[in-house]
Write a protein that binds this DNA or RNA. Sequence first.
DNA 1: TCTGGCACTCGGAAGCGAAGAGTGCCAGGC
DNA 2: GCCTGGCACTCTTCGCTTCCGAGTGCCAGA
Lengths: 338, 338
Amino acid sequence: MLSERRLQVLRAIVQDYVGTEEPVGSKALTERHNLGVSPATVRNDMAALEDEGFIAQPHTSAGRIPTDKGYRLFVDKLAGVKPMSAPERRAIQNFLDGAVDLDDVVARTVRLLAQLTRQVAVVQYPSLTRSTVRHVELLSLAPARVMLVLITDTGRVEQRMVDCPVPFGEASLADLRARLNSRVAGRRFSDVPLLVEDLPEAFDLEDRGPVSTVLSTLLETLVEENEERLMIGGTANLTRFGHDFPLTIRPVLEALEEQVVLLKLLGEAGDSGMTVRIGHENAYEGLNSTSVVSVGYGSGGEAVAKLGVVGPTRMDYPGTMGAVRAVARYVGQILAES
Amino acid sequence: MLSERRLQVLRAIVQDYVGTEEPVGSKALTERHNLGVSPATVRNDMAALEDEGFIAQPHTSAGRIPTDKGYRLFVDKLAGVKPMSAPERRAIQNFLDGAVDLDDVVARTVRLLAQLTRQVAVVQYPSLTRSTVRHVELLSLAPARVMLVLITDTGRVEQRMVDCPVPFGEASLADLRARLNSRVAGRRFSDVPLLVEDLPEAFDLEDRGPVSTVLSTLLETLVEENEERLMIGGTANLTRFGHDFPLTIRPVLEALEEQVVLLKLLGEAGDSGMTVRIGHENAYEGLNSTSVVSVGYGSGGEAVAKLGVVGPTRMDYPGTMGAVRAVARYVGQILAES
DNA sequence: TCTGGCACTCGGAAGCGAAGAGTGCCAGGC
DNA sequence: GCCTGGCACTCTTCGCTTCCGAGTGCCAGA
């Protein structure tokens, strides 16, 4: 177990390194933080911290920088979450309040997060399966062609074209619409499959074909993982990443382009509470020198999707976590209101 | 006027520079292209080209690189559009054919363009005002709350929430829906305002309020410029930009994040045919060292939106133009089919 | 008008040395 | 037993000089 002072030393190293972006030495540490001991003592502590793998030296005659393990300890034990100031909170609320629809909410959230944290922001659209159905609409566009529109309580809208094997009468369609809505409106999407299972039986034999086609499309829409959309922003912040550019930034940009990777990234994060993945803790290789701070957000108490930021492992964790948490909270409120 | 050979020299310089990314000297030129003259002669030609402002020297003892003006001449007079090969065309078609909805078409187009050109791809969603109405749907979500859903012939769907001042009866809503569709279905969005102008008069006095509210929301949706959405991709290709990284890449990333800037960029491009904007020809300062190749695409003969790529001025113009043109053509076909 | 030759310029790479930051270790003090 | 000041040592960084070569411009001759 590390002594109290050694933890203080580690905290000081992390803070200084995050601030200056340069390896920090024993002398500078004692000058900037009054630890009450001499540089020589700090040196001993540093040697111990290095033995334990919390810090490392880039090269022999340089200061120390925290390792992923060091950041992990810092986040878990040494630093809290820095709350947003009142003006900041007001600004967040004002900015988000101006949104006109779900797309706008998400877009604004991305911008906001990117600006607050000066990092890359990632916001997932409220997921279908965890939302509840507000309304299902069926539009007859052509005799054998129906458009299916799903509206969620979070304001998200999904539409899908359905080509029926045989024409579908307007009356039957209205019937289906009515029955469908009376069964599923207000229910969770994940419950829908069970709720509509026996629906075709209520129809005449001739209509069962089209009804089944529509229903199976509906179910498809629900399970389709790739409908998990997300939006990213603030990539220009990547340029503040480090000095060794192309090598660092490239894989990150590539990862950000792969929505699958990002969704997995957010998906892996714990379901409740804030998750911080540091450096190599990220499964995806390209993000090994980045940290991901993410948290769920939702209209009620329950999370319907996640949002977060991607930044260098050398980031201001307390501040970033504070911003992410605050933004998630307000987005949840906005969604609940709409 | 420049002699034929001098134009050849310019063409050779552009080609070599694009290939090697290094200033090209007179000796290398004569070796790689059989111009039939000696380096000394080429040197004279180069001096002339430099006088005219088509090429420049980064520093005294280096080779020449093309200026924006040089690229302009190259694009206008010296190079054609390189057609895609048959296998490439097939690949494009196959890739786009798999799309399930409009979002998917746009997403796939972006990926495709980025991969083909190895540059940043920008694809604008089919614009509302230039499309025609397929269907307008009104859903009653609550007594005084209506959801307006617009469906275009290109498959695009827009929805908007409408809060009515007073409750709106189900029957009246159905009436409005029917009248609205019979008037506007199949018509161009730009004609809609005129077509619905006198619609409120057909209703009872008590319903005119809600009807007007719904209609004005409809019109709002149509004119709202910021509803011009677009998608970008391939930003990882920016890392192949140049050696002087942060400085070059930063403003470009910033520009790409500003949808307004990009829309303006595409908007400025000529309405028909391919447009190439080279370096300083771009109004936006951050893109002064990039070129933008864009072209309109559409389901019929007419362009409903634009797509293009953003890359370094030092790009393979014939190849890029060929790819952009081919992709635009196939996207148009896909939209027409759906 | 083109060509070969030649002197000149200048940027980039390589080599060298001094400076400085930071460390590890040790002996002595509290 | 822990902390401290001192000291020798290690490396990186920076500036300086030198050298090399690519590329040019110009000129005289074919």
